[in-house]
Amino acid sequence: MNRSKVDNGNAARHPLISEFANDADMAELIEFFLSELDHRLQVLQAAWDTGNLEQVQSLSHQLKGAAGGYGFPSISEVAAELEHALAIHTPGSTLPRDRFESLMSQLRRAQAGAHHVD
């Protein structure tokens, strides 16, 4: 999977930092969000690989609603785009792969940002 290698490199070069990174009240919450990311990425990838679009849609719906609250509005945005693309997707038509990859790449960038802070 060349694509994911490229993305990982990209993520490391462009880490995504929470808008609330300087808010002491938010430190614990952001940490919780980031600590879950690994698992979330895996579940999303597995759902996508097995064609479980309903689960991908539901997971992106949750990220749309929550990520902005943790200081990652760009994740909310791409998650909303993916959710919308899946909502109007009809069986047999082209999958919104680019939208999916955008979300994954944003999540990886946030993950890279977590290590970056340390």
């Binding site: 009240d25 938010m26 614990e28 919450l29 919780f32 969000f33 879950e36 949750q62 990220l63 609603g65 929550a66 990520a67 609250g69 943790y70």
Partner: peptide, 14 residues
Amino acid sequence: DSELIHQLLRGRLR
């Protein structure tokens, strides 16, 4: 249905 939201509420309304 999202645990992310519950955590956020707990943290933000602490």
